[in-house]
């Protein structure tokens, strides 16, 4: 298939970016979206041009590195019948011959642009550092089953822990809010018995880190949930809000 690509190019974080148009012939329907970009980069390199920089690592949907807004959708997966996936799991058979595809980086104040399609997602690491840990007693390894965990809670915790921190929620949110990410990180620890020690301090600290990083607020639109490749639910946001209110009433600061 033949494709027209409109791709954001930006030399470095200080330079002004712009869209460049490229045309690519003979793209296989079976190739992945990133393989299509690899093909373009090979052509660019052969011509002596600078290849397009984009983030990727595992290419199997688990590392959270790949991050492209395709035709206005984070991870580009607004095409029935495919379910939410990461860009690396998106295939060219979902596009048609002769299509024009617009590719942009995540856009948020808290995710400064680095080069072309790569943005700096350190803000997420800072949120995790603020409270993404639990206290444990040191010493000999404890019996794994010593702490009973209700099956239901373990399941919810696993659902929240599925978050790979790609940042699509921020990219899709009209307010560039990081509430879905932060709430997943708070819930996967906060719902387990092991996470109770810091439960209220955690929510206060992580929400503060989120606000300080310059993310917007949540207006409960659900755009984040719609693009999340890991099906993280808005329920976690409600839970985080509830925990923050409880923490405030308890006077945690």
């Amino acid at each position: 298939m033949k494709l027209h690509l409109k791709i954001w190019r930006q030399e470095n974080k200080n330079s002004q970016g712009r869209f460049e148009n490229y045309t690519l012939d003979d793209v296989s329907q079976d190739s992945s979206f990133l393989e299509m970009l690899d093909l373009l980069n090979e052509e660019l390199t052969e011509k002596g041009d600078e290849p397009i920089a984009f983030d990727h690592d595992c290419r199997e949907g688990i590392c959270g590195m790949c991050s492209l807004v395709i035709n206005g959708v984070a991870h580009g997966q607004n095409r029935e019948p495919i379910k939410q996936v990461t860009v690396c799991q998106l295939h060219m058979r979902h596009f048609h011959d002769g299509e024009t595809i617009t590719i942009e980086p995540w856009r948020a104040q808290a995710f400064p642009a680095l080069k072309d399609l790569i943005v700096d997602r350190t803000a997420f690491d800072i949120i995790i550092q603020a409270g993404g840990y639990v206290s444990v007693s040191t010493g000999g390894a404890a019996e794994a089953s010593a702490i009973p965990v209700p099956k239901k809670d373990a399941d919810v915790s696993m659902d929240a822990a599925a978050c790979i921190g790609c940042g699509a929620c921020v990219a899709a949110c009209p307010n560039a809010s990081a509430m879905l990410f932060t709430s997943a990180k708070i819930t996967h620890l906060g719902i387990l018995p092991q996470g109770q020690t810091e439960r209220y301090q955690r929510v206060v600290d992580m929400v503060n880190a989120m606000d300080t990083a310059g993310f917007g607020g949540c207006t409960n639109m659900g755009e984040c949930e719609a693009v999340c490749p890991k099906d993280i639910s808005l329920d976690f946001i409600a839970r985080m809000n509830g925990d923050l209110i409880k923490a405030a009433l308890m006077g945690v600061s």
């Binding site: 409109k6 617009t102 856009r107 104040q109 808290a110 009209p174 560039a176 310059g214 917007g216």
Partner: peptide
């Protein structure tokens, strides 16, 4: 104040930005 903050959270806007879920009421 929240609305101003939300606008400031995305200084460089998208060329294309589809809404997948948000209703008219929400927007």
């Amino acid at each position: 104040t929240l609305n101003l903050r939300n606008k400031a959270s995305r200084p460089v806007t998208y060329n294309q930005h589809q809404k997948l879920r948000a209703s008219t009421a929400t927007l």
